[in-house]
Design a protein around this nucleic acid. Structure first.
Lengths: 233, 233
DNA sequence: CGCCATGTTGACCCAATTCAACGAGAGTGG
DNA sequence: CCACTCTCGTTGAATTGGGTCAACATGGCG
């Protein structure tokens, strides 16, 4: 039965997209026996900041946001994770509680993989460990970029950047609108500002012909200009 | 001769402080034969953003800043690295050019270690790889914290936080002043603001009895209040 | 002694936050 | 089917925070 087939890690295509591709057949088989597939509805939370995770979550389908609450009570979205990404890896590796919350932006299907498997493979499979290491190195660089942007770029610049990011990473629908439909509040949380200012900035973009909207949907009309803007002209 | 003794990696105490402690004797010996100790004067740069590194730098003594230039031409200090820290690791692991510049804040002594040794140990010594992995996981969490702070905390809050950080990580001299004497411009670059505003905020702190100064030196007078401030009261 | 880098202050302006109000759709229960 | 409420998007106006430019002080250092 193909239900069973799909659900075996050995046959899962998703793992081609992440460090799990470095795992050996035996590892995958063992993993498959104790993994657990979960369906998560839009808006539901996968884990919350400060929780101790007993494993990681491999995203098979759907999109989630990883966010952190600031001391001031404002939420900051640090990453948007979609198909192929592994959530909770950092916490398991560092044997710490999570520093981020994960919440579904769409209906999702994720596999929960008990941490013992991860830990074991980190011990015994250098290929896997190196793949994870490389990924974390990438993320670290990415994080540095965000720090600099947050510190020195205006909301206007950051919004332009975020829109281009959403476009390049999640694509457009057949009408050219951004495929990923975030709420204004979520976009504001990615940009790192208040919803009101986000909306106002978006309105300015419309007046300037950089974007257009239809309901909550957004279409990028002039990517070149948006790009120049994000780089500070 | 103890000159020689000190200069052998096997005998170097510094490596107790970082992931190099997971290296085996043979690895250290080989490393020692091709490493190169460099003296770097205050203000000199160790490497610049975009350079391709042929190895990593292990800090034996002195303190350095790791910074990144924003598109707007403003410098952001992302990390202050001192004794025991390894610079350039991320770039070597990801086989990329550096995303940061490193510059000495004091006279320094660093060991340059060709990347072949790092790469080899990453291949063959799981203990070492795991140590590096754990470290990167820590840094990633730290980076997330900074992102949230930059996005949502005021300069006032961030300065309080930075001062406490300088205090806890680099200590105080016998008079209770911060041991690490950064220029106002450097502090501003850590906080992520302009020098003028940094100075004004510092002046307010003085008036409020939170800190006192003597020349460029800074003493924290009321750490509790600074802490409360940094957390948003 | 004089120079150049660093520290400091004033004043002005724009960017960003905040509070408040309102409109529009999406359920929900009577 | 209609009120009801909830959430979400949107706009206005007041206020504050932060950036910028310009001037001036200071202090180490050749």
């Amino acid at each position: 039965m193909d239900e069973k087939n799909q659900s075996r890690c050995e046959n899962c295509i998703i793992r081609q997209m992440n460090s799990f591709k470095a795992l050996k057949k035996e590892e995958l088989k063992r993993m498959s026996d104790s993994k657990e597939t979960r369906h998560i509805k839009k808006g539901e939370s996968i884990f919350r900041e400060g929780e101790r995770l007993n494993g990681v979550f491999c995203v098979r389908d759907g999109i989630s946001k990883l966010s952190k609450m600031s001391d001031n009570g404002r939420d900051q979205i640090v990453k948007i994770a979609s198909k192929g990404e592994v959530l909770g890896q950092r916490s398991v590796i560092a044997s710490e509680t999570t520093n981020l919350s994960a919440k579904a932006l769409e209906d999702m299907e994720v596999c929960f993989i008990p941490k013992t498997h991860i830990e074991e493979s980190l011990q015994n499979n250098p290929l896997f460990t190196n793949a994870v290491l490389k990924m974390m190195a990438q993320e670290l660089k990415f994080a540095d970029d965000i720090i600099v942007n947050m510190a020195h770029k205006s909301v206007r610049q950051r919004l332009a950047e975020v829109l281009l990011y959403l476009d390049s990473h999640f694509g457009e629908d057949e009408d050219g609108y951004l495929y990923l439909q975030l709420s204004r509040a979520d976009i504001a949380d990615v940009v790192g500002t208040a919803t009101e200012l986000l909306i106002r900035t978006l309105t300015k973009f419309k007046k300037e012909g950089l974007v257009s909207t239809s309901g909550k949907r957004i279409k990028l009309e002039d990517k070149k200009s948006l790009y120049n803007l994000s780089e500070g002209l």
